[in-house]
Amino acid sequence: MTENKLVRMANQIATFFEIQPSDRAANVAAHINDNWSPPMRAGLLDHVAQGGDGLSPLVLEAAAMIRPARAS
């Protein structure tokens, strides 16, 4: 999956939670943990590790709560 798409999808999710009253970052992380497959999460976390170009601040904040893929 291209970085580009992951960034776009993550930002879209952040846009929804951005305007919610509370737990914004936690909810972004929970949504991604619940719905994204491990390789997709790994891809996103990689991208964050490399500076997170193009990601919204809320995604960057959520990144710490996004579970990495379990080694399999």
Partner: peptide, 8 residues
């Protein structure tokens, strides 16, 4: 762990 959706 969740799997892949069609587009994924």
């Amino acid at each position: 762990e969740p799997g892949l959706r069609i587009p994924n």
